[in-house]
């Protein structure tokens, strides 16, 4: 069997919230469990989709995997090597292999740098001279992501949202990384442009053998681009499966509710669908003092006594299909 390119074991990120004391020391205060005991593997060349509602911890998890954030607990292996404790110098070398594309193509690009400088910056940081060879590399990459050669000397504000996202992708790819975290990379774009960027990401994956973690809240885009999909709720993964299985036969009540909430693509039969839909009431609770037991029990239509006390483990219910729900372990 292949070795995973990225592997997280019992990964957690806790933020201390509340007032800071002298010298930044925390006095009491609460703990926000943004990511809590998450383990997952991403295989070379695959796209793992990561979905969940705002505040579920999906972006934090993405950042932990490439060590843009330091984990509070747990380990991340990249290509078999533990990167959790790497010193800054070694980390920089490893970072060549892992990059991120952000959601907001307006905020993620320095408005005072030309497109050429923006895309060249990672090369320079990693020791290349900003010479003609580097400029050629940048020009080739810009062309590859669908921008004209004239784009190089222009500034970000001269571009539309979709084109800016192409610039962000060029910057992420210039170091020839193997792993890309796409953090809501198409969410801010209009649908007609979103399709262009999704197609571009898929083409680049094929050509360059890239591995993606594709974080998004849009379930249909995630289905389209992913091989497997993980569903997060309040800092935990509640279900993970091949996309065909997850969308056709979701096991966790939260996944079921999430899929049922997506508006149907056609108005036919909508009244009947509305009546039959599995609904969840209320909002996701806060990740500060999350509910005990299963974190979804406060909104779950099937909650039982045990759900309020014991957190269900993420267990394999069928080959390659993981879910964390007492309803499923009971019948097994």
């Amino acid at each position: 069997m292949n070795r995973p390119l990225v592997e997280a074991t019992a990964l957690s990120k806790h933020f201390h919230v509340g007032p800071a004391g002298w010298f930044g020391r925390r006095i009491g205060g609460a703990v926000l469990r943004a990511v809590d005991d998450v383990s997952l593997r991403i295989m070379p060349g695959e796209t793992l989709g990561l979905v969940g509602e705002s505040g579920c911890g999906k972006s934090t998890l993405g950042r932990l995997l490439i060590r843009l954030l330091e984990a509070s607990d747990g380990h991340v292996l990249f290509d078999g090597a533990d990167i959790t404790g790497l010193a800054p110098k070694q980390l920089r070398e490893t970072r060549r292999g892992m990059q991120i594309v952000f959601q907001d193509p307006y905020g993620a690009l320095n408005p005072r740098m030309t497109v050429e400088d923006i895309v060249m910056e990672p090369l320079v940081i990693h020791g290349a001279k900003p010479d003609a060879a580097a400029r050629d590399k940048v020009a080739a990459m810009l062309e590859r992501v669908g921008l004209s050669a004239r784009a190089a000397s222009r500034f970000p504000h001269e571009f539309s949202g979709g084109q800016r996202q192409r610039i962000g992708i060029a910057r992420a790819l210039i170091l020839r990384p193997r792993f890309i975290v796409c953090d809501e990379a198409v969410s801010a774009l209009d649908v007609s442009v979103q399709a262009q960027i999704v197609n571009l990401l898929q083409d680049l994956q094929q050509e360059m053998g890239l591995t993606y973690l594709f974080i998004a809240h849009d379930l249909s885009v995630v289905r389209h681009i992913s091989d497997r999909v993980a569903v997060m709720y309040l800092g935990r993964i509640v279900e993970l499966a091949r996309k065909e299985e997850l969308y056709a036969a979701p096991l966790h009540p939260y996944t079921q509710a999430l899929l049922a909430a997506v508006p149907a693509p056609h108005p036919a039969g909508r009244a009947a669908r509305r009546a039959a839909r599995l609904r969840v009431a209320g909002d996701m609770p806060s990740a500060i003092n999350p509910p005990p037991g299963c974190r979804f029990h406060t909104r779950c239509p099937h909650a039982m006594a045990i759900c309020r006390e014991v957190a269900p483990p993420l267990a394999e219910t069928a080959p390659g299909h993981l879910a964390a729900c007492h309803l499923l372990t009971k019948t097994h």
């Binding site: 898929q202 249909s220 693509p265």
Partner: peptide, 16 residues
Amino acid sequence: CVPSLEHDRPRLVAIP
């Protein structure tokens, strides 16, 4: 150009 929740499309039909 909107992907489907129910079935796979090999490629999205984007508006250029």
